[in-house]
Design a protein around this nucleic acid. Sequence first.
DNA 1: AAGATAAACGGGCCGCGTTCCGTTTAGCGT
DNA 2: ACGCTAAACGGAACGCGGCCCGTTTATCTT
Lengths: 199, 199
Amino acid sequence: MIDSTALPLATAEPHLRADAVRNRALLLEAAARLAARRGAAAITMEAVAAEAGVGKGTVSRRFGDRNGLIQALLDRSESLFQEAFLTGGPPLGPEADPATRLRAFGPALLRHEHADLELYLAAEPSPGRRFAVPARQLRHRHVAVLVRALLPGADADLLAHTLLASVDVVLTDHLVRGRGMPLARVEAAWLDLVDRLLS
Amino acid sequence: MIDSTALPLATAEPHLRADAVRNRALLLEAAARLAARRGAAAITMEAVAAEAGVGKGTVSRRFGDRNGLIQALLDRSESLFQEAFLTGGPPLGPEADPATRLRAFGPALLRHEHADLELYLAAEPSPGRRFAVPARQLRHRHVAVLVRALLPGADADLLAHTLLASVDVVLTDHLVRGRGMPLARVEAAWLDLVDRLLS
DNA sequence: AAGATAAACGGGCCGCGTTCCGTTTAGCGT
DNA sequence: ACGCTAAACGGAACGCGGCCCGTTTATCTT
């Protein structure tokens, strides 16, 4: 369970020593340099440490793991995006009505993600594999065929991806085991989603 | 681009030498033994090779990588599930009408995935991390709030997960860069999805 | 200012996945 | 039966991520 009152951006480390602050900045600059020069894949713990002129242990201690380092790299643009939909102007911000905000949120998130695409993909291990699994492709085709038959006007391909994502095993395991949600509720949500789409 | 006419289960290696066939079976048995004895996390290339009494190179050559090995372990139950929705009886199979099949597919997939949960999670690297990222949680809360305001009767928590999954960066990058889909189509699909849900 | 203390540092170490290449062997043609 | 060849084998080697622990150093206290 995560404390939802904490600000998500400030990592909130109580007191960071001066040398630690300096090295943190050095490491982020080094990582950005490496990414700009040789692509985000060049962001390895060793290379970043070497580029910054510190030991590997320092990277590990500061950012936890490679993923934490990449998240930290993304923090700046992430906070800009968050500002836009939390306190910004319409159509994303709170001055617009909820429907407008929700409609605008998707495209905004898409553009945000694709602006830092390399880093976001580098944060996910083997991103290409996930959709290359034959069993997944077969399920997608199956669902797409059914959707196409039921909703001729819809983008069946994408809607099938959405439906499958709603019962993705990583998501549902996170909800069921990680947050104690009954599996029956996930099943009910699938039925509800299908009904709303078909109605 | 993948040949969609190929059977997804048979790996279709043209001619596998007798010793290769034997070792393949040995390796799958060894991996299953390890998983049963010490959990799916114990499926490492080295351990499986040692348990089967072959070299690591043999595992690599046969299954490509650790993921391929786990996929091969899942093939049996996967093909049973595929049979159920491709050629089985109602409500999953082709004798039922599309709406019934689609409604039944979600719960069936959920049960299938959670039967082999350990293996499915072992096939995904660091599955827990994905939803622990603060930025992700913030986006989810934001979307859930909007959904709750717009659809009081719905399961806003799960619906928010579904909406976010439809514009997940890994998915959309796969579609845009991997399959040449225009980003505008993904944006249009989001708007269409929201409109269908709100109508 | 000087000592105490906790934090940070460094880089060696281990485990794992993947690659590579010299060696072995199964399958086939003659 | 006998080789020939391509496939398979094995395990050493490499790169990377994460961990650990002896050493260094910033910061606080008095």
